[in-house]
Design a protein around this nucleic acid. Sequence first.
DNA 1: CTAGCCTTGAAG
DNA 2: CTTCAAGGCTAG
Length: 464
Amino acid sequence: MAAELPSSSESGHEMEMCSTIDSSFLQGSGSESSEFSQSRNEVSSYSGQNEDSNSSSSDTVASKKFKRSKEDKICLVCGDKALGYNFNAITCESCKAFFRRNALKSDQPKCLFQNDCLIDVRTRRFCPHCRLRRCFEVGMKKEMILDETERKARMQKVAMNRQMKQKHPQVGEIIIKQEPVSISIEATSSMPDTQSGGDEKTTFPTVAFGNSQPLILPTLTPDTVPKDPKMYRILKTEEKMLVEELSVAYVETLGGFANETHVNKEESYSSADELVNNSEIAVRRLIKFVKKIAQFRGMSQENQVACLKSCVLNALLLRSVNFYDAENDAWKTPTGSIPTSVLKHATGFNDLHDAHTSYCAGLKKLTRDDSNIMALIQTITVFNPDGQNLENRQTISDIQDQFIQLLRHYLESEVSFMHSQLFFSNILQKISELKGLGEDHARILLQINSNKIEPLMLEILNLQ
DNA sequence: CTAGCCTTGAAG
DNA sequence: CTTCAAGGCTAG
């Protein structure tokens, strides 16, 4: 189906888009900044070759030509000695800190004079208003200040690294956990139930669309879980690190914090095309996620694009699991929950919506929001050797195998050799169901009026 | 609050 | 391994 890249001009475009998107995210924003134009590249070329010219029109700043040889960078705000770029302008440390503290404040102090105070290294403290104004004039960008979420993610990463380093010395023994069951699931003899009285033992993944068999889940209770440490795999350090990395990448980008109400507005939609457009942010996150995967970065651009395109729907579907509230059969949104039934009718694709929600319910039950597992599943779906237009399927298959194995090992380390088998096969089954679900969605997407869809989404979904 | 110093992760 | 650019911490 679906043609392929809208030919030449655009296809080159896309990767470019990816990288811009990526860097725009790197820069923070958090709230999708619409123009992700300039970024580090531009910045660095600027510093690399000097060339003032652009930047803030106004260049009262002394010394136009700071050919930084090394030690002569000058703060564009106050003229103090500068270290380098801070928030997109060369500034000293104090102006950097000043900007960080003040740029986001809503109630700025007023200037007591004429809004034109001289700002230099001595006077910079006197008028915060003019100092801040100056900061913006010289091109400092408040979007580059990390927002709450990003800061948290960063801190989390730091903490995790620290922890990891600490562990490193004695790799041998810390691995066995006290309670090996981070994922606990009780056996459920799930029948294709429709909607029974609706408490949690009910829903199981009976995807109406694809041919899915009900899963039989392992019984993991304190009694059935092996006590003997030998029943658990000990992950190699690299494996642990890899899982950790993926998980962090996942949480930072696609996952959000499982229990937190960190939900984004793009998850709420009321019609199918809106859904697609609202997924744009999610797509950017996906891009950001995959770019954190070394194996992905290692592929050719063509393969990267093809991979991305072929997994995008599946990835979005997978991600939606995070926003599914199984208890209430609702979608979590920033403004509260929306019962799935509401959306189901709003979108007008009832069956598909049912399939989708029951898929989410099932997967959620299976993974119990374990971000390690979700991250692995996401990764596995990214490297899908079956995608369209792939130039090197074998490589992709090999990479996928790596992660499949990693998943298996991870499960063995978490739930024991004994239980991991069933677990593993269940997860694989969910992954393969995803394919059908994705295709069903794709089919429907094709019916959507394409001029209502944003260009990025058109392109990435091959809707043109 | 400021401003200097420090720690980090990412990128080169 | 080095450099860059974020954030954190804290004496002043």
